[in-house]
Design a protein around this nucleic acid. Structure first.
Lengths: 342, 342
DNA sequence: CTGAAAGCGCTTACAG
DNA sequence: CTGAAAGCGCTTACAG
C-alpha cells in the first residue's frame, strides 16, 4: 500500500493513486488516465489499473483533483426554502438535468433572507463552484459584487429579468398575478382582496400584477390588501381570512399569494359556514397536489417549477461550457387552473 | 497580486493566501494563522493581514485546505426524498444543529432506492466526509462495507436499531404502527384495513406493528392489507381507498401508512358521500400541517422529525470529535393525535 | 510569536 | 501510448 510513513509523513492512510499505480506497475499519470480518460491508455494497462483499483478499494480524492485541475465540478444552488414544495420540485428538476454529469450539488437554504444568502454564498464560493443557480432576481449588493468579480456563470430561476445580460428561466410573476385577478374580475367580482405573506420577491410581483388589474378595472382599494411578513402556512391563511372579512365585510373574492394560504382560507370558511365560491370566491397560486383534490377544488395558477429547475440547470451547463444560450431569458409560462373555488 | 505567470504557470488567477501574505508583508504561514487561529498572531500582523484580505477580496480555497489538512469539514446527508416534508424537516433540524460549525452539507436524494444510495455514497466518499447521516437502518451490503472500511462516523435517522454499536436517533416505527392500530381497535373497529405505499423501510415496519396488534386482537386477515410500491400521493390514497372498499366491503377503518394517502382517502370519501368517521374511520401517519385543518381533522401519529435531524446532527458532531454518546440509541418517541377522522 | 521547508493527492504541460 | 517533473493553494511539523 502506501510507503511506510517516515517521521515527517502526513499521509492520511487512505489508498492513493500512487498506490494503485504501484500495484499496477505503471506511473501515477498512467493510472490517472486509465481512470479518467481510459481511451488514451492501452487496454492491457487499463485492465491492470482497473484491477488494482478494485483490489485496493481506491476512492479518488476530490479535493486533490479540484486543486490540481482548478475545476471543482461543484454547482451551487440557493433556494429560499426546503419546506416549500415549489422549491423541492425545482431541485428535483435540477438533479434530473445534471444526473450523469458528475456535478456535485451544493444546496443552500437562504430561508428567504438576503443576509443568509450572502453568508451562504460566501462560504460556498470557497468551493470554487463551476456554476451557480439562484432563486429570484434581487440580491444584496455584496452578493451581486461577489458574483461579478468571481466571473462564475449564474442562472436565475423563477422570474424573468429585464436585464438582457442576465441568464434566467421562469415566468412573469407579474403577469400571472394579473391574469388571476382578471379572471376573478371576469367572474363579476368587485371587492377582490389580496392576501400576501412572506413578502418575498415573487409575492410582491404577484401583488403588483393584482394591483395593475384592479386599477385597470377601476376597482383599486388599498384596504383590500393584507400583506404580512410571516411564513405562508395553512394556519396563517385561516387567520388572514378572518382579518380580511373583519376589515372588508363586503369582500367577494380573495386572491391568496399561494396555495398554502388558500387552503387555510378555505378550511376556515368551512369552519365558519361560509360557502365557497357562492358567498366568497377563493383562489391560490402554484397548484399544490392537494389543491385539485380538496372540496371545493382550488382555483389556482399552475407553475412549471420542475421544468424551471431542469431548464435552468441545462442552461447553466451550457454556460459553463462557454456556450451562449439561444435565448438568455427562457419564459416557461404559467397556467390558470379554473376549478371550483372561484 | 500573483507572480506574473511564467510559461508553465498553472495559476488560476484567483487571489491566494500568498498574495495576501505578500501584501501584508508576512509569511504565508502567518497569514494562514491570522485567518484561522487569530489568537496565535500579534495584533499588529493580524490587522495587516485582515486588511490585505479585505483589499484583495481573498476567498480561501477549500479544496487546498482539505487536501493539506486531511479534513474536509463535509458532512454527508442521505435522505430518500426531498418532496416529502418529513425529510425536509429533518434537514432543517440538521442545518440548525450545525449552523455555526463551518460544516458543508452534502445532501443526497436516494429516491427510496438502495442502488441510488450506493451510487451517491460512492461519489460523496470522494469528498472524504467527516461524518455521515443516513436515513433508515437497512442498506445494501456494499454500502455497509463502504461505511465500515472508511471508518467515518455514521448516525442513522428515523428508526431505532437492534445493533448496540450503531448510532441512531428516531423512534420505533413498529410500536407507532402498533399503537395506532390498538387505538382503532379500542374504538371498536373490527375490520381495519392497512394501506401502504412506497414500501420503504418505515412503511414495512409500521405494517409490522399493525399486524402484531391485529393478531393480538384476533382480527388478522391478510385481505385487509394493500401494499403497493408506488410513491405515496393524495391521488394514490384516493385510488387505494376505492380498491380497499371493493376488496373488503365491510371494512370499518383504514390505517394509511402516511398522511398523504390519508388525505386522498378522505377526499375520495367526500366525493363518494362516505361519512368519516361514521361509516369509515380513517387515520394517517406523520401529522402534516394540513391534517389538523382539514374537515374532518385527521387522526394521525405525530413524529419528531425536526428533532430527529437536530439530535442526529448533534450526536454526529460529538462522534466526529471522538466522543462516545451517553446513549447510542436516542428514542424521541411519537404522539398519537386523536382527532375527528377516527 | 514568526517563518522556511515539505507535503497533502492529484493533474497539467511537456517530452519521448 | 507512457511517464518524469512541476505545480495547484493550502497546512503540518518543526525550528527559532
Amino acid at each position: 500500500m502506501s510507503k511506510s510513513p517516515s517521521t515527517r509523513s502526513r499521509a492520511s492512510g487512505r489508498v492513493t493513486l500512487s498506490d494503485v499505480a504501484a500495484r499496477a506497475g505503471v506511473a501515477p499519470m498512467t493510472a490517472s488516465r486509465a481512470i479518467n480518460q481510459p481511451d488514451l491508455v492501452s487496454s492491457l494497462l487499463r485492465q491492470r489499473v482497473e484491477q488494482a483499483v478494485q483490489e485496493l478499494g481506491y476512492v479518488p480524492n476530490r479535493a486533490a483533483r479540484a486543486l490540481a485541475s482548478a475545476q471543482s465540478n461543484v454547482i451551487v444552488v440557493l433556494v429560499p426554502s426546503l419546506s416549500n414544495t415549489v422549491f423541492t420540485a425545482v431541485l428535483q428538476g435540477i438533479q434530473d438535468a445534471l444526473d450523469d454529469d458528475n456535478y456535485q450539488l451544493l444546496i443552500g437554504n437562504t430561508r428567504y433572507s438576503d443576509a443568509e444568502e450572502e453568508k451562504l454564498l460566501n462560504v460556498y464560493m470557497q468551493s470554487n463552484p463551476d456554476g451557480i443557480l439562484l432563486s429570484g432576481l434581487t440580491h444584496s449588493p455584496r452578493v451581486q459584487q461577489m458574483l461579478e468579480t468571481s466571473r462564475v456563470p449564474v442562472v436565475s430561476m423563477m422570474d424573468l429579468s429585464s436585464d438582457p445580460d442576465l441568464l434566467c428561466v421562469g415566468f412573469s410573476q407579474v403577469e400571472a398575478g394579473q391574469a388571476m385577478t382578471r379572471y376573478l374580475i371576469g367572474k363579476g367580482k368587485k371587492r377582490i382582496g389580496f392576501i400576501g405573506a412572506q413578502l418575498d420577491e415573487r409575492t410582491l410581483r404577484r401583488a403588483e400584477g393584482y394591483r395593475k388589474a384592479m386599477a385597470d378595472a377601476g376597482l383599486a382599494d388599498s384596504r383590500l390588501e393584507i400583506m404580512v411578513p410571516d411564513p405562508s402556512t395553512i394556519a396563517l391563511g385561516a387567520e388572514l381570512l378572518g382579518r380580511m372579512l373583519a376589515q372588508v365585510p363586503d369582500c367577494d373574492a380573495i386572491f391568496c399569494c399561494n396555495d398554502d394560504l388558500a387552503h387555510g382560507a378555505i378550511y376556515q370558511c368551512q369552519r365558519r359556514g361560509i360557502e365557497v365560491p357562492g358567498q366568497l370566491a377563493i383562489c391560490g397560486f402554484n397548484d399544490l397536489p392537494a389543491s385539485a383534490w380538496m372540496k371545493p377544488a382550488l382555483t389556482t395558477v399552475g407553475t412549471p417549477r420542475y421544468k424551471i429547475g431542469f431548464e435552468a440547470a441545462t442552461m447553466l451547463r451550457a454556460a459553463i461550457r462557454g456556450e451562449r444560450p439561444a435565448q438568455a431569458h427562457l419564459d416557461l409560462g404559467f397556467t390558470l387552473m379554473a376549478r371550483e373555488s372561484a
